[in-house]
Design a protein around this nucleic acid. Structure first.
Lengths: 232, 232
DNA sequence: GGTTTGCCGATTGTCGACAATTTCCTTGAC
DNA sequence: GTCAAGGAAATTGTCGACAATCGGCAAACC
């Protein structure tokens, strides 16, 4: 209850609110697999463990619900969401729809700042593809590329929706335990999309994106199915 | 997971919690204009007025935030969202993207039950187009048509996202005060979309949908702009 | 033996109170 | 008269407590 007593230096200043901190903690715990699928997320237990009251925990859980990380059942509480192969495929289809629309707008309205940012992000992906970086970092770099596409579209709705569903993909990928055999290959896969975009070649960019996402979908869904059949 | 067997006449009884009731009340108040744009939505005041504590009001407000009806500012509270013409246009673009994808899937995977349901919904729209029905009813009938398209798509994400943003369109239309000059004409506008869908004519259906939504967008956005310039 | 019924512990739903923060109004200096 | 500093009032943030509800277990019944 006293997270502020005289730090004579300057701490990042907690202006972030207890709710956000709890939400971030929980989402990280879920994405990294500390909390397993279908597991109950008791308000009281979490609150006790974190040393806060139930109110902020409850609100944080509601936030995660919107991100699809937890499910809420009335009078039962929150549960770590268990995703099915079908839902996973639906998720990728949805991402394809949104990102395709975003790419179209991006090309038509001019790329602006997004061009350099995307180039930069692919470099970032290649950088963290090397040894010494954990998979979460690699997955996040991947996601950021797609996020940048939505962000640059000029329609905030695209980005907002992408953010809402991004964590679900991330969660599943982390759950599967590996993305591709090679993170370097993953980074390269994004290049054709960006190349086409920079050429203002809309059909090719859309096609490259479709190919990219469908390949990712097939890989993830297939590995997910395998995992479902023989858990651990 | 089968809530349909042994229904000898008992429906699950409205286990609707306090939160949902409050949320519905508030959203209705906003959509019907009882609460005006930008107005503060004080937790304490609402709680006092409804005779409940702040907790359910707060949760209800968070729900409305996801629907885009209210904005939340940390340490400031909830405010009835004020939408700009730009956001309105973005909203319609987003709807176009989602509904187009839904129509495509609907046609490709077979319409199933959705065909008759859509026919029925257009009839409903025509029915409430007559005198004696208020605009809210007419707008809701319109929305339901588009909602059915998303619902039938087979991808729950489409529907979920549509529901999240539908209220925003509804809100704005109500704010403007009239939809078209003639609700009858509005109902008819949906016919070409449905016709093409029933013929499994994907390009034509997509085109009809695009035309329909863009016309609606232009009308709504224009009237909205007029209203912005000379309020009341 | 198998089903129903009533209890019990645990968890969520709601509440009122207090602490922290913001907002607004007052006050005073220039 | 204008503006800044300060404080009062109002509002949100968080808390702990109590009521309502759920799932499971054991006793009671056929």
């Amino acid at each position: 209850m006293d997270p502020k007593q005289d730090n004579d230096g300057f701490q990042p200043l907690d202006r972030e609110g207890l709710v956000q901190r709890v939400a971030r903690l929980l989402s990280k715990a879920i994405v990294t697999g500390q909390l397993s699928q279908g597991e109950r997320l008791s308000e009281s237990v979490v609150a006790r463990q974190l040393g806060v009251s139930r109110a902020p925990v409850r609100e944080a859980a509601r936030l995660l619900e919107n991100s699809g990380l937890v499910t809420y059942l009335p009078n039962r509480g929150f549960f770590v969401r268990s995703i099915t192969a079908r839902e996973l495929a639906d998720l990728y289809e949805f991402r394809l729809v949104i990102e395709t629309a975003a790419v179209r707008r991006l090309i038509r309205d001019g790329m602006g700042e997004s061009g350099p940012r995307l180039v930069q992000q692919i470099e970032e992906m290649r950088r963290v593809a090397g040894p010494g970086f954990d998979m979460l970092t690699q997955v996040e770099a991947d996601m950021e590329f797609h996020r940048l596409i939505c962000a640059g579209s000029g329609n905030p709705k695209f980005l907002a929706t992408f953010d809402q569903i991004a964590m679900e993909s991330e969660l599943t990928i982390m759950m599967i335990g590996r993305l591709y055999d090679d993170a370097q290959k993953l980074a390269d896969t994004h290049q054709p999309i960006l190349d086409a975009m920079l050429r203002h070649d809309e059909p090719e960019a859309v096609e490259a994106l479709r190919y990219h996402i469908e390949v990712a979908r097939d890989l993830v869904v297939e590995q997910f199915r395998n995992m479902e059949e023989k858990p651990d």
